[in-house]
Design a protein around this nucleic acid. Structure first.
Length: 282
DNA sequence: ATCCTATCCTGTAGGC
DNA sequence: TGCCTACAGGATAGGA
């Protein structure tokens, strides 16, 4: 599941391999993703030069000349893939960009929850996908006080708070659980009721987990791959995610799996405590 | 306003 | 072995 570290890994590789290239031609599968890909996309991409690869939250932005930006989101199973030589056709390739000088850039997405949309750069900040995003925790790190302010008044569980892209942009199901384990916080606590000290622990844990995951090229469960097809290596570092029934690496207690908002949450019932809080605190 | 649920999709894992 | 079903989750529309 591509979250901030996976998207950042893809961004870095695109920056290295395709920035500076010119798109010679483009072709679409014709199948809709989260929304249909505009049929005019190939014509608008032809001849454009790739100027930069950026990331905001889980969105990957490919800046082109003539003030255009290709906005992409990998959804659940999306992948940008670079092939140096003309590769054989494969399933689930929804956009193929042939680069001048050889090489192809593919947007693959079996589950089609992804997004591909061409936007004028001047209109980016107003684009519905990006407009309402909260701060990106790597580009705009938030301290504990700031997080506490963002959470003021909300009763949602802190795990769900971390998943809300409108509050903080980039965390998904894997890293939300990992961050709360590092911060030693029960994922069921009401976000609006955490203490300053608890928010401070969350604020420190977010970049610690994300930066280590970026160093290891992200986490691969099933489909995620880097641009060149390598799996991420953070999986072996996971402390709780997908480890239900296994011992906590910190205290040895058995990791639990619960469901919050129809999503799995993993946590250690011993070292992620409620700190003697009352029943109404979550 | 705030919060929660159902929905989209397909590869994979588990049961029998 | 093969068929069937349940499950995984990011974002969002719509309902409570």
């Amino acid at each position: 599941m591509p979250e901030l570290p996976e998207v950042e890994t893809v961004r870095r590789m695109l920056a290295e391999r395709v920035v500076g290239s010119v798109i010679r031609s483009a072709a679409l599968s014709g199948l809709p993703l989260r929304e249909p890909i505009a049929r005019t996309l190939p014509a608008r991409l032809r001849g454009r030069r790739i100027e930069a690869a950026r990331r905001i939250g889980k969105y990957l932005l490919i800046d082109l000349d003539r003030d255009l930006t290709l906005v992409s989101h990998l959804g659940m199973s999306g992948r940008w893939r670079y092939e140096a030589a003309a590769p054989p056709p494969e399933r689930h390739v929804h956009a193929r960009l042939a680069l001048a000088g050889g090489g192809e850039l593919w947007f693959e997405d079996p589950r089609r929850f992804g997004l591909l949309r061409l936007v004028r750069r001047g209109a980016l900040a107003r684009d519905p996908a990006l407009r309402a995003l909260g701060p990106d925790p790597i580009l705009e790190p938030q301290g504990g006080e700031s997080l506490r302010e963002i959470a003021r008044g909300t009763r949602v569980a802190v795990k769900n708070f971390l998943l809300d892209q409108h509050r903080i942009a980039g965390l998904g199901n894997i890293y939300a659980s990992e961050i709360l384990h590092r911060a030693r916080l029960d994922p069921r606590l009401a976000a609006g009721r955490l203490t300053a000290r608890e928010w401070s622990a969350v604020a420190r844990s977010i970049p610690a987990v994300l930066e280590e995951a970026i160093r290891r090229s992200g986490t691969t469960f099933s489909t995620y791959r880097t641009v060149s097809g390598q799996p991420g290596r953070y999986g072996e570092r996971l402390r709780v995610y997908e480890r239900a029934g296994e011992p906590c690496r910190r205290c040895g207690a058995t990791i639990r799996r619960i469901v919050q908002g129809q999503r799995a949450t993993y946590f250690c019932p011993r070292c992620q405590r409620r700190n003697g809080r009352g029943r109404d605190s979550y």
